[in-house]
Design a binder for these strands. Structure first.
Length: 298
DNA sequence: TGAATTGTTATCGT
DNA sequence: AACGATAACAATTC
């Protein structure tokens, strides 16, 4: 077992990567991680009836803990799927349980013998097969939502990047129609849904684009490259079960394939120039200054 | 101890 | 006014 330490900014927390019992946990579930979770839990959740729901931190339940309980208890989960970073459980005609993990949310089984994972239990679901599903979330930013109108919850989300309607042509219309820095644009869930800090940095590097590039300065060829990079990297990340920096996603393997994220100061895999850490849209942002030249605004 | 962490939303500025 | 950038916020960790 090895660990790698990464510093972000002056005096920032040290991250221990791929360390078995790390207590430095900075999980950031994005589309590939949520997809992995859905695939992992689907066999044990689809077809199950929810016998009990208990909320221990009511603010995370919407519209209220009581409304979630009334909405889902006694209902059968007919389908578990994903929309952007939402986990969606269909529990009836026009009835849905949506879970957003935000920064630190995760599922655990109460029966798991490793009880060290059972800290920060904020809610749990008892199933008709006797299993108890825990919702753990140290930062309490996650959301548990009961919705009869799915559109009201997800209607503002943009295109699914892996869907066929995410085309270079449609993406180009979006980029050309405004002048906005690429990184905040890609983080905006109402445009392309599901990207977060890790995959935005990775896709911009793959496309050779600087995060501050104004969207209307991106050439048609570059738009195609960026769109293809987004799809290629997300698919690859899903294939590797997402990125795991810690115990929250113990089985992910994508972190070994990240080229700039979390690699400040390390040589760029393409040209050897040290990876730089910038702050863009309040986020730690990793770039190769040579492969991703900065382009001025119009 | 205060700075760092993310996605969403409110507010500021041009 | 409309849009883009920025700050605030949720709470926790060391």
């Amino acid at each position: 077992m090895y660990s790698r330490h990464i510093r972000i900014g002056r005096g920032a927390a040290t991250r221990r990567v791929r360390s078995g019992h790390s207590r430095y946990h900075l999980a950031m579930p994005e589309l590939p991680e949520v997809e992995t979770i859905v695939r992992t839990y689907r066999p044990r959740l689809e077809g199950r009836r929810i016998a009990r729901f208990v909320s221990r931190w009511a603010k995370q339940a919407q519209p209220s803990a009581a409304a979630v309980r009334r909405g889902i208890v006694g209902k059968r989960i007919t389908r578990l799927w994903r929309r952007a970073k939402f986990i969606v459980a269909d529990v009836g005609q026009n009835e849905h349980l949506l879970i957003h993990l935000r920064m630190s949310g995760r599922f655990e089984w109460a029966a798991d013998e490793d009880k060290s994972k059972h800290r920060h239990v904020r809610a749990y679901f008892d199933l008709d097969d006797g299993n108890r599903l825990l919702f753990c979330d140290s930062r309490k930013f996650g959301k548990i939502i009961y919705a009869t109108d799915l559109e009201a919850e997800t209607g503002r989300l943009g295109v699914e990047p892996l869907d066929s309607d995410f085309t270079t042509k449609s993406f180009q219309r979006v980029l050309r129609g405004r002048s906005r820095q690429l990184k905040p644009l890609l983080l905006d869930q109402s445009i392309v849904a599901g990207l977060g800090n890790i995959y935005v940095d990775e896709t911009l590097f793959a496309a050779g684009l600087h995060p501050l590039t104004p969207s209307d300065r991106v050439t048609p060829k570059q738009v195609g490259g960026l769109r293809n990079s987004i799809r290629r990297i997300l698919r690859k990340a899903i294939r590797h079960n997402g990125t795991s920096f810690d115990w929250i996603y113990p089985d992910g393997g994508m972190e070994r394939h990240l080229k700039v994220y979390g690699r400040t100061g390390e040589p760029c895999p393409t040209c050897g120039t040290p990876i730089e850490l910038l702050r863009v849209a309040q986020r730690g942002t990793h770039v190769c200054p040579r492969c991703q030249p900065c382009i001025a605004a119009k």
